[in-house]
């Protein structure tokens, strides 16, 4: 059984089909990239997979459970237990330190554990910035805090919507390296990106156009 199976989903806004009958399978440990022009439905797709939104039609089966018709309360629980989210705009709580931002995810998941949160920051190379507020961190550092926060509860899937969209080359490479490491450790990753360099390090790239899967590219393992 696949970890994630998207079956014929459509998302319809009035007369606009943001997603049009899309199907997709993701196995445990997969690293999938989603590309496509602006407005092609990438974020819509991620929101549905990330249990933040529901499809108009079709089913999303995550870990053997259909989440396409759940109440918003149980969707919250699914997000908390199974999904790690990374955003283009980082989205950190601006009055909490890097460390506390990671601990917030622990707090809402189970119980905060400062030591474990610190280790997560170490993994993304930010141990020395633990006590800094987001405003005192660079964009790349903020994004790494986000990654640490997404990892902290050992999610089934890590979803990143344009994680490098606001980063320069050096920080982008750092983020790619972290993803590589995560993949090596067995994490399941889905990354939306405009950047071919970010896409080609994934195992497989899906290209969306007008809400449909236009093509799939299998990248050669390097």
């Amino acid at each position: 059984m696949s970890l994630l199976e998207v079956k014929n989903i459509s998302k319809i806004y009035g007369s606009l089909k943001a997603l049009d009958n899309v199907s997709l399978k993701v196995e445990k440990g997969d690293w999938l990239a989603i590309m496509g022009p602006s407005g092609s439905g990438k974020s819509t797709m991620m929101n549905i997979i990330g249990a933040m939104d529901k499809p108009t039609l079709g089913q999303v089966i995550l870990d053997g459970k259909d989440i396409s018709k759940e109440s918003s309360k149980s969707l919250t629980q699914i997000r908390r237990d199974k999904i790690g989210l990374i955003f283009q705009q980082f989205h950190l709580v601006n009055y909490l330190t890097a460390l506390e931002n990671v601990m917030v995810a622990q707090y809402y998941h189970s119980i905060p554990d400062e030591k474990e949160a610190m280790e997560a920051l170490e993994r993304v190379g930010l141990a020395d910035r633990a006590k800094h507020l987001p405003a005192q961190l660079s964009g790349g550092e903020q994004q790494r805090v986000c990654i640490a926060r997404a990892l902290i509860n050992y999610p089934e899937i890590i979803l990143a919507d344009e994680p490098t969209g606001n980063l320069d080359e050096a920080n982008e490479n750092m983020v790619i390296d972290i993803f590589r490491q995560l993949h090596k450790d067995g994490s399941t990753l889905i990354v939306v990106t405009h950047d071919p360099e970010v896409a080609e390090v994934a195992q497989k790239t899906i290209v969306l156009e007008h809400g449909k899967v236009a093509r799939e590219v299998i990248n050669n393992e390097k």
Binding site: M52, T76, R79, V93, V104, A105, Y108
Partner: peptide
């Protein structure tokens, strides 16, 4: 929104 996204009720 963020707190909800990371799973807060």
């Amino acid at each position: 929104g963020l707190l909800k996204a990371i799973g807060a009720n």
